[in-house]
Design a protein around this nucleic acid. Structure first.
Lengths: 341, 341
DNA sequence: CTGAAAGCGCTAACAC
DNA sequence: GTGTTAGCGCTTTCAG
């Protein structure tokens, strides 16, 4: 594998019989170049197979034309069957594609990779950084922002209120409202022993959805039954078993993710309960699984892809120094009724 | 969002009262620096929050310490519920993490993004490039290799034999053998009308699995029934319907992916067929769905994560100029028998 | 063991 | 319009 010498601007300039500056102008599409010269330069570029050295270019322009999406998760989780990540990346991808920016996806599930990613961003590999799926009160977004790197989060950063320094802007969905709609639907259907399988309490999606459940049950004057999972199907199965053991007469369960709802379906079937006859089940996400499960799941649809798009657009705005950008955008959620409740 | 001035080597040098060269030595861990000076420099680095500018560094070292994984697919496909991508990325991630290289994930599903990714790699953003999930006879791997960029593919490149210039090394799994084992299992169980739902014929996984089916049925002297899908569940559903319409007496089907096998299960249930009593079903992948489907799927397990790890290790070897690296590695597959066949 | 100096390849004023 | 000239921030000989 020979590392062939790559031609430089200088080489192209010599071949075309012009100066480096002129070649640079042509390569960067400046209009003020005579047609004849432009053509000569273009030919030289083609003949030599010239491609600008990005390191040299970035060194002077301070731009890389690429943008990072940082997922503080292990690859194991990012690429589990959790369709949150796909959806967010799809949305981000669409916007960056349109802006001709390169998306650089990075996972940072370990302390080591967390550091590496920070160095990567601070070292100037990218023009801006997006975060999704944050856990706890991660200092990284704030750190980068403080260094002057454009940053945006999907999902309200936890503890964003008690930090000094500039707030990190974010885009999120209305977890609370979606859960409230789902739980009210259960109440309206006459369910009275409504349990929930909550998500991890170090993530805003887990916290806000549980808050929605608690507030709505309180409003209805009903007792709360909470079990915890981590958004995966397996955790949904065991949480449902716990719930069933605690209260065999449970007649409804609101799961904070479709995967956990699917797990609940499996555990209920194992336990001989019929859905929705004995127990109603509602999920959250509206992923494909909710249409193919047995029975199809009633669920709360959240516009994850839109969240990704919005986040990307905001970040591009930040990078371009636009002003009047909102510090927070919250997208609506919607209850989708199917057979399970 | 103030773009604060980042400190340079020069600033650190001034503060520590030494030369830039010395700071550079300390930062890069050179041993030949007096302990006292090293400490002074380290302190200055900390106080200033100095982080080396990667563009400047790359400009002289010709290294970026990051590696690209290029997926010639849209985000839509990469992050569908196809668990191939997750698995490969997990494997790659593990190896690169160990080598402290940054993984840069890029999707290139459109012609435009395909070009952008090529420019990105050629411009020297990364030290090496890995490809997965290639379609047709993609010239990109060969192009990059020809420019002296270390390249490796997961999945045997189609048309790799009739190109001039250096071959692109690859890692793949034994599609043919896995399918053959599955189909023989069906034959041994007494099935005689064995159909297949084949994958896309512009991908090596689609082509080789179909070849395995054809060869094994031929060997058994049985008739072939082929329908095509694109590895997704939806395509499995419609392919199964076609198969059923063409031959209502079909008694087995080998699907080239678990998702398509799951689709077949759904279509068969709709058609009132019992699995495996009326029709046996085998998938390919051994993803989680195959354990949770009804009935659980007999399937061919392929070590995708291992393929990712192996690919990453090979590439790191290439980058470091190791020799004796194989041009091709083929990992074994294995039939996993569950209830569906 | 440390400093001085020469670029890496490119862009952007500034002249002409 | 086009060329000349300074660097961007860093590593790396080469002297001392």
């Amino acid at each position: 594998m020979v590392t062939r010498e790559r031609p430089t601007l200088e080489a192209v300039a010599r071949r075309a019989g012009v100066s480096r500056a002129t070649v640079s102008r042509v390569v960067n599409g400046s209009t003020s170049v005579a047609a004849a010269i432009r053509e000569a330069v273009t030919r030289a570029v083609d003949e030599l197979g010239y491609v600008p050295n990005q390191a040299a270019r970035s060194l002077v322009t301070q731009r890389t034309e690429s943008i990072a999406l940082i997922l503080p998760e292990t690859a194991n989780r990012v690429f589990s069957d959790d369709l949150f990540f796909p959806a967010i990346i799809r949305g981000v991808g669409v916007e960056l594609e349109a802006a001709d920016k390169q998306l650089v996806l990075m996972m940072a599930g370990s302390a080591k990779s967390h550091d590496r990613v920070e160095r990567y961003a601070v070292a100037g590999h990218v023009d801006g950084v997006m975060f999704a799926s944050m856990h706890g009160d991660d200092p990284l977004p704030g750190n980068l922002a403080r260094l002057g790197i454009p940053v945006i989060c999907s999902g309200r950063p936890l503890g964003s209120l008690d930090h000094s320094g500039p707030e990190v802007p974010y885009v999120d969905v209305d977890h609370f409202g979606g859960v409230a709609a789902g739980v009210r639907h259960l109440v309206a259907a006459g369910r009275r022993r409504i349990a929930t399988i909550a998500g991890p309490q170090d993530m805003v999606a887990g916290i806000d959805r549980l808050a929605g459940y608690r507030a709505t049950l309180e409003e209805a004057g009903l007792a709360q039954h909470v079990a915890f999972g981590d958004f995966t199907r397996e955790s949904g199965i065991s949480a449902m078993r716990t719930l069933l053991a605690d209260d065999p007469a449970v007649d409804a369960v609101f799961a904070a993710s479709d995967m956990m709802a699917h797990g609940a379906l499996i555990a209920l079937k194992d336990a001989g309960r019929r859905v929705p006859h004995d127990v109603a089940v509602i999920g959250f996400d509206d992923f494909e699984i909710s249409r193919y499960s047995d029975p199809p799941l009633t669920t709360v649809r959240q516009p994850i892809t839109d969240m990704g798009r919005t986040m990307a657009r905001q970040l591009l705005g930040l990078i371009n120094g636009e002003d009047g950008l909102p510090d927070a955008v919250v997208l609506p959620t919607e209850l989708v009724v199917r057979d399970s409740a």
